[in-house]
Amino acid sequence: MLRACTIIILLFCLNLSVGQAFAIVEKGHDLLTESPFSDPHDSQAMPEAWIQQPVQHPEGGRKSDLLVHLSYQVADIWRPWLEGFARQEGVSIAIKEGADGVAAGLLSRKEADIACYCGSPIKTDRLPGLQFHTVAAVPIAMFVHPDNPVKDLPLEDILKIYRGEIDNWSRVGGEDVRIQPVARSHCKKRNGRFRPLEDMSDLSPRALLVGSIQDMVGFVSKTPGAIGYEIIPQIETMVEEGKVKPLTIDGRNPYDLDFLRRGEYPYYRSYTFTIWEGDDRAAKLSEKLIQMLHRKTEQLSERVKMIPASRLKKAGWSFYQGELVGEPKHVGHVH
């Protein structure tokens, strides 16, 4: 409350109206309760000329049969699969890595055949002619320095830590060490259960904002009071080497994929691929590639710590034409 008042006073001092000031603060809170999925029918209107424009690979990928964008977070897992697919099909695939912004840019310029979002697509991502296929969901683990005695945090306390309302580990059963939350906000505009952690308007002023996964994991491994979050494949090696320690959330272990599969684990990312509608060779290849990703993810689920879409469907998650659009109805996430 005190923090909200401070912000309102500050904004007021900055020549803002009281209504506008309240609107900014409220907006932050709205983000915490909104659905992690956008309406799949709410799409972006584009000019006809754009719609008629074919996919044209940019320089560096012009000679490729397909240009595929991979989310950089899981590119190491999927790249070999794509290479195997290319060999099997006798085609060439150019791969571009990057965050969701890169995917959105490539698609809006019609430069990629396939792109991957690490969160649920938003309206501006739903361009005419695009199909969305969620391939997998991956738990996001909260992790701390290995010397930190805390093993479990309630979800509510995690949010309080990131909001700055809890600033010492002694308040959550740890030692008298100041908490240093670390955040990455590369996907904050997209929907997903990670949003409360990345929402800048609600983030503690003391939170350290880093721009890369390596910085997130590296900083936590060197800082006794730090807490961070990443998907399991990104921290697995560091966990095995004892450099960071994953936490359970309300007793739920991120490594136990059943919690997420049942919709009981609060933080995760879903990886949704886009392909263009059509019946040309590229579209058919794209569809085949997505099928391969589904198949491989299902086969190697435990090894790559991903829950394939097929198992999510069986567990009651909602899909709309291949896109994940809802969590199991019997489970409610409280944020």
Partner: peptide, 15 residues
């Protein structure tokens, strides 16, 4: 050079 993944980056670059 480390890949930065910042909000709304249409270009992927390293730092």
């Amino acid at each position: 050079p480390q890949a930065l993944a910042l909000v709304g980056m249409e270009l992927h670059f390293r730092f």
